[in-house]
Design a protein around this nucleic acid. Structure first.
Lengths: 245, 245
DNA sequence: GACAAGCAAATTGTCGACAATCTAACAAGG
DNA sequence: CCTTGTTAGATTGTCGACAATTTGCTTGTC
């Protein structure tokens, strides 16, 4: 018998599809930070009952992109400069670890996959598809975490990625300028193929730095505009913001 | 007006209480790895309907201590030697990062809290309360993550802690020997109070090493006993195991 | 006008029942 | 004997309705 690996059957529960829908809406910035999610309205729009919707929302709360206050509502997380800075700091640490673990495991398949993902980024850049560009860039970046062979690391990074994707989407949305056409990942890919692990680690940090610098500036701008909420409870403040429509 | 911080009102939803109950049952090892959670039975035992129970289970799935297979059931995660090793590796990295960030922020309140938690561990040790001993030891360990001032790091560590607590509980349960009476954390606390950050980081790694060595040995024993499931899907294998009762 | 009590609307939390799916046992056919 | 189709039972997934809680408005009082 031929050795054929079948991929798992897709989850056919409404819950799973709702999770996917909501996640996309949040990560692409269609649902804005602080926005309240009205269960009845969303359930009607999706043509499902509130039960699977609520279960889906519970998952996203635990995934860290929604917050929930009993009897008050469920809200898209707010984004502060500190949140972004925290995520960035940890990401740097995880990257170094991932590169260290991936390094001895690199093989032809790794390099091929690296090229494949790099190509996907370049394609999205050519298409001027910012959402897809963010998505593919993070997938390129995620390869070292997948390859490191540490399931806990991968899981952690994927959770972090959700937020990063949201942050970048918000940033892109705020500044309506066109996407940079240059290839920012050329050096990153080259170093990952090379022989100097330290150099790769160092570049990974710096590379992320470049992306995050803009993000931080954007977030700090946000802070100032909504500065009244400085010491207040963010979630509570969110209550007074408009509903989803 | 006196500057008084009120602690948040307790969540009065059934869901939150169910989460707490289930989590405790899993983290203390009362619910064994791979065990299936029968919704109807648990709901009846807790005198609640399945709706809040299912929502609670969704949270724990996302928290990583339950796994769910559509239309098949929700199971306590299986524990493999590799899982423990992965968690251990990442924990080491997070610890170094946490110490680095906490280091300049240490003050009297930090030292006081450190002593307080250290004392709690010693008390639990004197009481021969293994469950509480694990709990307090992890809380002592968690201080650096709380103090580091990075919310993403803290969140990540707390997720890791859930599993660590489960692993240690299983380990303690397997070997019925009495708890070691010596104080394993003396050096750790002393170094955190000292001036040599590198030394503290190094000891943290080694200190964890000691705890994990036993865990790994235990897990590897598990692997061999249930070796038939080596290549098989763990979750599927779990289906054939006995229900909760 | 300021303020407290009380009511009404909207929203979230929970419940019980039904639908969809899986598992296991059994029968039929090769 | 092995495989395939069928069926009954149990369990999970989903639904619509009801209960609990919050919020904002209204009313009455000073």
């Amino acid at each position: 018998m031929a050795k054929l690996d079948f991929s798992p059957i897709a989850d056919t529960t409404r819950r799973a599809e709702i999770v996917a829908l909501l996640k996309r809406a949040i990560l692409t910035g269609q649902l804005e930070p602080g926005q309240k999610l009205n269960e009845l309205r969303i359930a009607e729009q999706m043509r499902v009952s509130r039960a699977p919707l609520r279960e889906a929302m519970r998952e996203l709360v635990q995934e860290g992109i929604l917050t929930s206050i009993p009897y008050a509502g469920t809200f898209v997380i707010d984004v502060t400069a500190k949140d972004i800075d925290d995520a960035y700091s940890l990401n740097k640490v995880l990257d170094e670890f991932a590169i260290e673990r991936t390094w001895p495991l690199r093989d032809q398949r790794f390099f091929d996959e690296l090229d494949r993902r790099h190509e996907a980024v370049k394609q999205a850049t050519r298409d001027l598809n910012t959402t897809r560009q963010i998505e593919t860039a993070l997938q390129l970046h995620g390869l070292i975490h997948e390859w490191a062979g540490n399931s806990v690391l991968l899981e952690t990074w994927q959770r972090l990625t959700s937020r990063l994707q949201m942050y970048f989407a918000l940033h892109q949305r705020a500044r309506k300028e066109p996407v940079p056409a240059e290839d920012l990942h050329e050096t990153y890919v080259r170093l990952l193929k090379g022989a100097d692990m330290r150099a790769a680690q160092r570049h990974a940090s710096e590379h992320i730095d470049g992306d995050f610098e803009q993000l931080l500036a954007y977030a700090q701008g946000l802070e100032q505009r909504t500065s009244k909420g400085a010491g207040a409870n963010r979630a509570v403040a969110a209550r007074n913001r408009p509903d989803d429509g």
